[in-house]
Design a binder for these strands. Structure first.
Lengths: 231, 231
DNA sequence: GATGTCATTATTGTATCCAATCATTGTCGG
DNA sequence: CCGACAATGATTGGATACAATAATGACATC
């Protein structure tokens, strides 16, 4: 663990600053669940592990705090922040509002190239057995449908909500409710878009999102009753 | 300008850290337009003016960057970021989506105390001639209607969008379209809520928000044609 | 006169050192 | 035995010093 985790390769086009690298690394680790919620982030420990001084660490922590991934209290250090079940549910509700809107704007603008891209992603998701890749392609599928709406801020906002909701949950939990069900729903959504049935497509997308939230939350609650403490 | 701008009073309950004070100050100055868009923020200059070293300045800038208020490029410093007209319009659209949803959730839960609070704010807004206060009370009025929905993350998100949209615009511009019109629309909105007419209330609120955006954008475009450069 | 190169300078990025604050523990008095 | 209080250690916050990088301008060359 004392080896240089941060890629220090100044070779290519990307000559990032140390702070930026620390931010990127910690963000990945938090969103992937490698750094569990509630974990104390000691500046000196991180500095030693990452091979930099404490200054970039501190600047990175402030940045992550502004992003909502860590919480800091004066002179008491930083901890990885978590989402309560209420927060989690609200996150999905916001996604439902914004994504249905994006879809509504997109549908009239979707062309053959968009459908081809979406179908390709669906095939990959049906084949690929790796959960991590599936999750990422799941987002790519959704994003592909929203891109024509040309609302970059909204898309970025929704992306953050998506990632933030998924973090911390061990992979087996994420796909509760069945990837098969999700795949079928995706296919149906795509068909509704092709038919130009905006209203039904919106309804279906809303159900798709909110149902995913419900399954996830139920599983989480069950886990907590078992005392396994996943949040 | 060399005087200590940062309130260094460690007296009261608020013993904030220097970084936090710098963040708060810079955020205020940016959102209020005191620091115009595109302005270069020199670390040493800020440090001297605020009476702290460069370290808190740097940490503050990183935090503001994560909030989207400044942009940083490696070894080139920070500049106050701005909103394009497209960004501005999208901001209002997002608000329209989320605020109508919050209102929908709230209406069945609004009680006498909420209406009393809202009416009080309306009276103050009708009387108060100070633009700055009006703007803040305008938000308070909206927020009062959304509070019962009990969606804290959404409310905070919308608040940030509201503030971010208003920044940089000199006060006389903000209230284009007439405060009287705004006040009438607020009163109508309140009446529709009282009647429990969710659909009409939502429609009216959406028009209220989007119309405000349109007026603002038209004025901005006119200003730019004059070369006054307000964005 | 234009252009490319190199030195200079201004500015940012990082490391090290010092100060301030919080948690813990041990001691004293009841 | 227990609670208040002081000393100590651990950890964060801030300032200074140094290194790295990008902008500027002078100079030489074509």
């Amino acid at each position: 663990m004392t080896a240089p985790i941060l890629s220090t390769k100044t070779t290519a086009l990307e000559r990032k600053t140390a702070t930026a690298r620390v931010v990127a690394l910690l963000r990945d680790q938090i969103l992937s669940g490698a750094l569990p919620e509630g974990l104390q982030l000691r500046q000196e420990k991180l500095a030693a592990e990452l091979g930099v001084s404490r200054v970039p660490i501190r600047e990175a922590l402030h940045q992550l705090e502004a992003e909502g991934l860590v919480l800091q209290e004066s002179h008491k250090g930083a901890v990885v922040s978590g989402l309560s079940i209420d927060d989690l549910e609200e996150t999905y509700e916001i996604r439902a509002r914004l994504e249905t809107w994006l879809l509504e704007l997109s549908i009239p603008l979707l062309g053959p190239q968009h459908y081809a891209r979406a179908e390709e992603l669906l095939v990959r998701m049906a084949v690929d057995r790796e959960d991590e890749a599936w999750s990422s392609q799941n987002w790519n599928f959704h994003a592909a449908l929203y891109t024509p709406a040309n609302r970059p801020q909204t898309l970025e906002l929704v992306r953050k909500l998506y990632l933030n909701a998924y973090r911390h949950f061990p992979l087996p939990i994420r796909l509760t409710g069945g990837r098969d069900r999700m795949n079928r729903e995706h296919q149906l959504l795509l068909d509704l878009c092709r038919q130009g049935d905006i209203e039904r497509a919106k309804d279906h997308l809303e159900q798709h999102i909110l149902m995913g939230a419900r399954h996830l939350i139920n599983r989480l609650k069950a886990l907590r009753r078992q005392g396994k403490s996943a949040t």
